[in-house]
Computed example of a mutant assay.
Amino acid sequence: MRRRPPAHTPARSEISEQTTLGATYVRALMRSQLRAGLGALSVLALLVGTLPVLVALSRSASGPLVWVTLGLVAYPVMWLIARWYVTRAERNEADFTGLVMDPAEAPGTHRVPG
């Protein structure tokens, strides 16, 4: 007689039962999300922090240089930082979901209890 696989993977049951191991899994996810957020924030702070220096250095140059710096350099870089952060956060969550999901469940399918 074939043995039926467990309804939940051990990681999922550890989290739902709020055991120490489950808390460790959740803390690991939170740490990786925090690391990604702090990385994006530090690069953004570096970018925004250097803008006053660029403006001060460009005082001798023409006024449009400041606007070109702000419009053509700062915003695209901020968009790239935001895009990197969102991609990293989604990857962290996908990795975590892959850890706790039942291997028999395909992504996008829902089990109906029965």
Score class of each variant (00 low, 15 high):
R2N: 12
R2A: 15
R3S: 13
P5R: 09
P5M: 01
H8A: 06
T9V: 13
R12V: 01
R12G: 02
R12Q: 14
E14N: 14
E14Y: 12
E14A: 15
I15M: 03
I15P: 00
S16G: 00
S16I: 14
S16A: 08
E17K: 10
T19F: 06
T19Y: 04
T19C: 05
T19H: 08
T20K: 12
L21N: 12
L21P: 01
G22N: 09
T24A: 13
Y25N: 05
Y25V: 07
V26S: 02
R27F: 03
R27I: 03
A28T: 15
L29P: 04
L29Y: 07
L29W: 05
L29G: 06
M30S: 10
R31D: 11
R31M: 07
R31E: 10
R31N: 10
Q33T: 06
Q33E: 12
L34I: 01
L34E: 12
L34H: 07
R35H: 05
R35E: 13
G37Q: 11
L38Q: 13
A40F: 08
A40M: 03
A40N: 04
L41S: 10
L41V: 03
V43L: 13
L44Q: 07
A45L: 14
A45K: 02
L46F: 11
L47K: 02
T50M: 04
T50G: 01
L51W: 04
L51V: 15
V55T: 00
V55P: 00
A56W: 04
S58K: 04
S58V: 00
S60Y: 02
S60F: 01
S60C: 01
A61V: 12
A61D: 07
S62M: 00
S62E: 14
S62L: 01
P64D: 08
P64C: 01
L65D: 01
V66F: 01
V66E: 13
W67H: 05
V68C: 03
T69V: 02
T69H: 12
L70Y: 04
L70C: 06
L70F: 08
G71W: 10
L72Y: 04
L72E: 04
L72P: 02
L72T: 06
V73F: 15
V73E: 00
A74E: 05
A74T: 07
A74S: 05
Y75A: 15
Y75S: 09
P76R: 08
M78W: 11
M78N: 00
M78P: 00
W79C: 09
I81T: 09
A82W: 15
R83M: 05
W84I: 04
Y85T: 11
V86S: 15
V86I: 13
V86T: 11
V86C: 10
R88M: 03
R88K: 11
R88F: 01
A89N: 12
E90D: 14
E90A: 15
R91H: 14
N92D: 15
E93A: 11
E93T: 06
E93N: 15
E93V: 10
A94R: 12
F96D: 08
T97Y: 02
T97P: 00
G98Q: 15
G98C: 09
G98Y: 03
L99H: 08
M101E: 11
M101K: 13
P103E: 09
P103C: 04
P103I: 01
A104L: 12
E105P: 00
T109A: 09
H110M: 05
R111V: 12
P113S: 08
G114P: 05
G114T: 10
